[in-house]
Design a protein around this nucleic acid. Structure first.
Lengths: 338, 338
DNA sequence: TTGTAAGCGTTATCAG
DNA sequence: CTGATAACGCTTACAA
């Protein structure tokens, strides 16, 4: 091995007196190998600090050791949490994380992603909501021989290819808690139609109301699109109802911030005149006034698990698929004051 | 070429009746090539929809077509903006973006990054603040034959290896504007010691005050660490001064949100009793109440330019290096009401 | 200006 | 169980 160069498989082979192929077998943990041979080679590998060249492996295997993160920006905090979670798993492995923001409204999205996977010969991809709900996309990735794990809010796929938060349960619990605090008129701001997460949160709301023996009222419910402005509009509608709510559950934090603004516009105090609960525990939640009570899901742990399913397919099905979210109780929701 | 397989350089060579090497020359835009030959080969490439295999090129060139984004989480919105900017440039090229969050407090950080670059044979890396200010790290990357572009708030490097916002100028302008609004007692919340961005913003503050003929007063200045809590503490200090400020400039939005909380704790109204200006225009800024007046820097465009410098080194020095930030005027700062 | 031969560092094939 | 030998798809000498 030339001075200053990184050692290659040839160096290892020569120094341990075996063939390249045998070294390759050691690297790839082939089961049919003499224990003594294996140990001898491993000793040389350790001594040389040999690390297999990923590019060469990629060429020979026609498969790169890259995990792709494909998303359409649900929210910055979440995307970053996911990236950190994936890194928690693949740090110190030969895998690397490559990211690809996409535009789900582009007619060529699936085609673009296909080209990306094909060109980079991705080992696996992780799909984030909302595009994780696109079955056609998931199938297209699989057809390319690429493992897919989807992150979502419900059972989108089988255990080996899914990590999900149990949004329905979490919302149901949050609403039941509001009821325990004495609230009877509870308003609801739904997320956009066509989003599974929005649907699950809606079902959770209905469930929680039922548990508390309360009846949802369409006059204090509205649909938003997960953006601040839509939350503001929803808040204006709900608070101008003849019989306005004393508490509002919003399907995400950004809309909850909008509801809060709507309340202020009307001169209402939060939480004294109105309790508000959001969902996601984004950075906004902790920094608005009053700090927002919200549902937090364990994004980083979920992403780490997803990466494990992606890079260790053998054990994929046995890793957990469902994660429980918990309610972060801050100042925006208090007991009902008549 | 076998059915269903992707075409290789050999297919192109065979169909156009030239050697592999000539095709390779076409791909790599070699200048010494007969125009007719080139066109003939290009036609076949187009017909076959041939795309060079990046893994094979990586092996032969000992250099992967991967751009690494190395950062220590300054803020989610910013990191995501950077990723989108980079993608704006490398989409539809053979490059891909690989991300690597790191921990700047880890003693092995530089070593880890070195291993990462070496293993993945990165083409280039982009360093985000605050680790972009680490010269040792930048040099380590370069020693590995990896191009480095740094993003920062001042001249950290030469034009070919830098994109920077002009924080000093932006802060100076913001402070001058407060003075125009009639404010005379202007407080300042500094960022953490050792951060170039914090230093630049401090200098900008001093400059702005000087322009307005005002004298900074240490009794209404405090240092934070860019986190919410430190802003809260700073606000408490400044507002309890014997002669409190009528306006406060905070070196980032998160601390500005803290200042806002501090004001509320004391029963003050913002902006009536206190004007506040932040820096960064993060998601928080638009969603707190009142919406925060803040300085916004063109992150996405900066990142896109950085990626261009990374992937097209020939033109790197001629791309712009400095970007002007602008003041986003929202409701948190108004004219001085005695 | 173009082509030939020899790698780049790994894995697959198939014989021993 | 192990090892020659040929891929993998491209580039870099070095010729012609």
């Amino acid at each position: 091995m030339a001075k200053g160069q990184k050692p290659t498989i040839n160096d290892v082979a020569r120094l341990s007196g075996v063939s390249k192929k045998t070294v390759s077998r050691v690297i790839n943990k082939s089961p049919l190998l003499n224990q003594a041979t294996r140990e001898k080679v491993e000793a040389v590998i350790a001594e040389l600090e040999y690390v297999p060249n990923p590019q060469a492996r990629a060429l020979a295997l026609r498969r790169n050791f890259l995990i792709g993160l494909i998303h359409d920006n649900p929210n910055a905090q979440m995307v970053l949490g996911v990236q950190e979670g994936i890194l928690d798993t693949i740090r110190n492995t030969e895998f690397a994380l490559v990211v690809r923001p996409v535009d789900r409204h582009s007619p060529t999205m699936v085609e673009d992603i296909r080209g990306f996977i094909e060109q980079q010969r991705l080992y696996g991809v992780m799909l984030l909501p909302p595009i994780s709900e696109n079955d056609e996309l998931a199938q297209a990735c699989r057809d390319l021989g690429c493992t897919v794990v989807r992150m979502g809010s419900a059972r989108l796929d089988d255990d080996a290819h899914l990590v999900a938060s149990n949004d329905r349960q979490a919302v149901s619990d949050a609403v039941a808690w509001l009821a325990e605090l004495g609230h009877k008129r509870i308003g609801f701001v739904a997320g956009p139609e066509g989003f599974l997460s929005a649907r699950e949160r809606e079902l959770g709301f209905a469930e929680g109301m039922a548990r508390a023996g309360l009846k949802p009222d369409a006059k204090i419910a509205a649909r938003g699109n997960y953006r601040f402005e839509s939350g503001l509009a929803a808040g204006q509608k709900l608070l101008s109802a003849k019989s306005p709510p004393s508490a509002i559950f919003s399907s995400n934090d950004e809309m909850a911030a909008g509801v809060l603004h709507a309340a202020r516009e009307r001169g209402m105090s939060v939480p004294e005149d109105l309790s508000i609960i959001g969902f996601d525990d984004t950075a906004i939640a902790a920094h608005i006034w009053p700090p927002l009570t919200t549902v937090r899901w364990p994004i980083r742990a979920m992403a780490a698990t997803a990466a494990a399913k992606l890079t260790r397919p053998e054990t994929a099905a046995s890793e957990p698929s469902f994660f429980l979210s918990d309610l972060v109780r801050r100042a925006s929701a208090i007991e009902y004051l008549p």
